[in-house]
Simulated scan of single mutants.
Amino acid sequence: MTSEEMTAPVKAYLEQLKQRRSPSTVANYGLDLRRMMKALAAHDIQTWNQVDQYLLMQVVTELSATVSAASIQRYRSSLRQFYRYLLEQRLVDHDPTQDLALPRRVMAEPATLSVEETLALIETITGTAPLAIRNRTILEVMYATGLKVSELLALTKADLHFNLNFLTVHDHLGKERLVPISQRAQKWVEKYLQVARPQLVNSANETAILFLNVRGGQLSRQAVWQLLKNSAAKAQLQVTVTPEILRASLKAHLLANQADYLAVVQILGNRIQNMPLLSLKRIQEVYRTCLPTALEEGE
């Protein structure tokens, strides 16, 4: 429930606004601010001074799942004007809307898959042949971790830390991050390592790379894209599935389950200037709590 300390300043602001803006403009500001109050109340916010830039980014991202990009832009504008009023009235000591960058998902709104569509995509791969097990494992890992193709293909056996439920991931700049992985995806990786990979290894030129092609070498980016294309067609999905769409889908599913926005950003390896670094324990806690159950549990 929204506190009186949240609603009272809004009422006073709208009354002041009536003196210089049209009734329709005042009504729109009121709708925007009430929507934001409701969203902030879901995060146990009781006063406007408790809001910081990172919480606003999370709330804006959550709202973007149900409203248009134009509406999100309007919410930001309404909040900026409102916080100017709060500062003038000395009701807050900071302005969290200053330099607030909209998350990329709000700006571009890439397509995402529902949980059901994600399951359908992954479960198109069946059978016990080495390539079938490898392909199923790739889809399981791509969704469970949100890795980019380059990060997926760079994985080695040494990057797997299943006793602690995470992977070490190397980005294109050579920087490492720790990424949680579901029990379900772990079981598929273990099956791949035990059953399929030994049949793909080239004993004359063995490599530590995790995912191998039929010649025992590193899998290509084109092969992963083709796998996604074929699986989407088999699942009869009405969207062209790309690695970025799988990343966006994981992000959307976590946020829909009230995941901490900063934790999701860190999992995906995105960077926000001056963003605080969360502990692996906190990241894993958010991940376990917010990953859809159907895509977390092992088979």
Results as ranks from 00 to 15, higher is better:
E176H: 10
R177D: 12
L164S: 11
K187I: 03
L178R: 13
L155E: 04
W188Y: 05
V195W: 07
R177E: 14
K157Y: 02
L164R: 14
T156M: 08
F166C: 07
N163K: 06
T156N: 15
H170Y: 11
Q183H: 08
H161R: 06
S182R: 07
L193S: 04
D159A: 05
A154P: 07
L178G: 00
V169I: 08
D171K: 02
H172N: 12
R184S: 14
K157V: 10
Q194I: 03
H170L: 15
L160I: 06
E176I: 10
Q183C: 10
V195A: 11
N163A: 08
H172S: 15
F162W: 07
K187H: 10
H170Q: 15
K191Y: 09
L167R: 00
L173D: 15
L167V: 01
W188K: 04
N165F: 01
F166T: 00
K191A: 15
T168G: 03
K191E: 14
R177F: 11
Q183M: 12
H161K: 05
V169K: 02
N163Y: 04
H172E: 14
L193T: 04
R177S: 13
Y192K: 06
L193K: 02
T168E: 03
G174L: 09
V179C: 15
H161C: 05
T156Q: 11
F166E: 13
Q186M: 14
S182H: 03
L167P: 05
R177I: 10
T156V: 01
Q194E: 12
D159G: 05
L173G: 13
A154C: 08
F166L: 14
